[in-house]
Amino acid sequence: MTTEKTLSPPKANTSPYDVADHLRTPEDMAAYLDAWLEDAADDISGIARALGDLARAKGMSQVARDTGLSRESLYRALSENGNPSFGTVLKVARALGLKLRAEAM
């Protein structure tokens, strides 16, 4: 009787992708938010999540200090189910060094 061994492929070391790890410069951050606003302008929760990604990229504790809001309230407001007030959006944008502008369509 012969026994056959099956070889399994080596396990890859992977980690979940986090866009916040790749948003390093103010230009990267502006382009990311601009893309959300351009491509998914009606996706309010998506835009809130995008702001959350940017806040995590800069450091949520720093953004909390700069906005005067608690980290917990920022995480909640900028989560998938978050619904930040316009005032919070403006405070976060300012803390990220971003300026929101209107443009004629």
Score class of each variant (00 low, 15 high):
D39S: 15
A50Q: 10
I47P: 11
A41C: 02
I44V: 12
W36F: 10
A40Y: 15
A41G: 01
R76N: 13
E103G: 04
G97R: 04
R56F: 09
P26W: 07
R101N: 08
E103C: 01
P26N: 09
A55C: 05
Q62M: 09
T67S: 02
T25E: 09
E38T: 15
K99T: 13
S79E: 06
T25D: 09
S61Q: 08
R56W: 08
L90I: 12
L69M: 15
V89S: 08
R101F: 08
N83P: 04
E38D: 15
R49Y: 07
D28N: 02
F86V: 15
A40H: 12
L69V: 14
S70A: 08
D34V: 04
P84V: 08
G68S: 02
R49D: 13
T88K: 00
S85V: 07
L96P: 12
L69G: 05
L37G: 06
L37R: 08
A77T: 06
V89H: 03
W36C: 13
K91Q: 13
G59M: 10
A93T: 02
G87D: 06
N81L: 06
Y75Q: 10
W36G: 11
Y75W: 09
S73P: 00
K58W: 06
M60E: 08
S70I: 03
G68E: 01
E72D: 15
L69W: 10
R56V: 11
N81G: 11
S45E: 13
G52A: 02
L33W: 03
E72I: 11
T88A: 00
E27H: 12
D28M: 00
K91H: 11
L23P: 00
A30E: 12
A102L: 14
